[in-house]
Design a protein around this nucleic acid. Structure first.
Lengths: 120, 120
DNA sequence: CCTCCATTTCGATGAACGTCTATGTTGACG
DNA sequence: CGTCAACATAGACGTTCATCGAAATGGAGG
């Protein structure tokens, strides 16, 4: 394939996990890896935290910016950790604050997995 | 309502739930509804069952076609019920067998929610 | 009717999860 | 150094969930 594009397009390495759900039945192993991503977004609090980061200006936010989700601070920290373990967020400490940022490739992978319906 | 379009395009009613995660922080209520969809796909067994239906010829499959996922048959039925409650599958009985079918609009909604990353 | 087969429902059990309070860690600033 | 603020970790508690075996439902066929 002549993939000489200089644009930041999706390259195959970015979607290493699994084929679209509509292509063929997932194997057990594929299902485990894919389910982990969906599971990470399967909690309302995590989803709000993730959305808050994703929609924040600059594509990143410190914890203090997004802690107003109705649960205690340790719970926020706990959920951010889960999102990080799932590969959906990355974090970086800068001085006093810790900044979280969306990992675009994982989102792209999820979109890819949803298959033709998602692209409609 | 003037819904006179003859084309099977995505109409707004099909994506009633929520804006893309990247557009603005989700409200609590939006997060609950959206998380339910992701949660339904957040289990490996459910994901395999869903994939089996989605990839089956004709876009539908009877339970007997997709029961080889390594759990007991009642457990399969349990997960299919969950997927149905989440709006991801529909079912119809034809004689002895029950056929499950993918609900495309919900998949489209999820793709929409994933936002620009998924569409890339 | 009676039986067979596919599927669902029921009830129980053990693991995983979300949440909290209390405490620890890390950097900034006098 | 001492203190404060931001964030993470630890441990406990109640709830939800996935799973199973057993029993119920409901068409199909003799």
């Amino acid at each position: 394939m002549s993939n000489a594009s200089p644009l930041p397009l999706l390259d195959p390495d970015v979607v290493p996990c699994c084929p679209p759900l509509t292509e063929r039945p997932l194997t057990a192993e594929e299902a485990v890896r894919t389910a982990a991503m969906f599971k990470a977004l399967g909690d309302p609090v995590r989803l709000r935290l993730f959305s808050a980061v994703a929609s924040h200006e600059g594509g990143e936010a410190c914890v203090c910016d997004i802690s107003d989700v109705g649960v205690s601070q340790p719970t926020v920290s706990h959920h951010l950790k889960k999102l990080k373990e799932a590969g959906l967020l990355t974090s970086e400490r800068r001085g006093t604050w810790v900044y979280y940022r969306v990992e675009p490739s994982v989102l792209a992978a999820m979109g890819h997995i949803l298959g033709r319906y998602a692209a409609a």
